[in-house]
Computed example of a mutant assay.
Amino acid sequence: MSGARPRATPPLWRRMPWFDRGGRFSALKTLCLLILLAPGLWLAWESFAGVLGARPLTALIHESGRWAVRFLLASLAVTPARVVLNWPRATLLRRMIGVAAAAYTLAHLVLYSADQNFRWFAIGAEIVARFYLAVGFLSLLGLSALAATSTDAMLARLGRNWKRLHRGVHVFTAFALLHFLLSLKANITEPVLMAGFFVWLEAWRLLAARHQGQVAALLALTLLAALATAAIEAGWYGFATHLDWHRVLAANWMPRYGLRPAVVVALVGLGVIIASRLRRLGGDGRRPRRFAPA
């Protein structure tokens, strides 16, 4: 028999988000927690300060939804960061970021309900009648289920089914992005940009493991994501607003229109490649270690 003793479970107060799994203070997790809390605290301050304009509740609804989508994509970026940037400790942040995304999504619904004076029947009827509200609500339900089952206890209880359930985050993120896109009437720059990042993240997962850190594969992936972003933007304006989609597509290559989402996606993709090479030049080139869920 082995003489190794089972690792003792840290007391409750040492299982707070700013401690690691061994109950030790983690500067990385603390910094991540502060970043996740910052948008909510800032919005709360703006609300109390009265600087959100004539319709502060509407502004809060929009901003909470935006941060929910941003954090959802950040949670999907954890695995690529671990592999591409050779940063295994990134895995320690995935659970915290995912729960924060679900919390901002729930706040988004609560604020919308407050704007409707908590008339639950009318709210339910609106969700059923409006497609963009329905897909947003489905995303909320899914993300809430993932947040509720993100604990170690639920991981042990569900076993293999836990991983199957949590793969649904990709579908729920797609629903959230569709809700984001459909909820805007004119300027769709940010949802298109987020959609471009989502294409990159999902396409990266389709690469064979041996190609996921290779420069050639990442360059092809960046080009694919940039072209997909341009197509999404042009297609949206062409079908939803009946603008000439050829002109929208051509605007991506005209500097006078500023940085279009497709260009930003391409620049970020190139930045990831450069960061990857710098990390590997500065490290030992070994494959990243696996970390247990944070």
Rank of each mutant, 00 (worst) to 15 (best):
W67R: 01
W67N: 11
W67S: 04
W67F: 15
W67C: 02
V69T: 14
V69C: 13
R70P: 04
R70I: 02
F71H: 11
F71P: 04
L72N: 11
L73S: 02
L73P: 00
A74H: 04
A74Q: 07
A74I: 07
S75Q: 12
L76A: 11
A77W: 04
A77N: 05
V78T: 02
V78A: 03
T79Y: 09
T79R: 13
T79V: 08
P80D: 10
P80S: 09
P80V: 06
P80I: 08
A81N: 07
A81F: 09
A81K: 08
A81M: 15
A81G: 14
A81R: 12
R82P: 01
R82N: 10
V83F: 12
V83L: 15
V84C: 03
V84E: 08
V84T: 13
L85H: 10
L85N: 10
L85D: 11
N86Y: 05
W87K: 10
P88Q: 14
P88D: 15
P88C: 08
R89Y: 09
A90N: 10
A90K: 08
A90D: 11
A90I: 06
T91W: 08
T91L: 13
L92N: 13
L93Y: 06
L93T: 14
R94I: 07
R95A: 00
R95C: 00
R95D: 00
R95E: 00
M96I: 02
M96A: 08
I97N: 09
I97R: 02
G98H: 05
G98Q: 05
V99E: 10
V99N: 01
A100Y: 03
A100V: 00
A101I: 01
A102T: 08
A102S: 15
T105P: 00
T105V: 02
A107S: 14
A107F: 05
H108Y: 05
H108L: 07
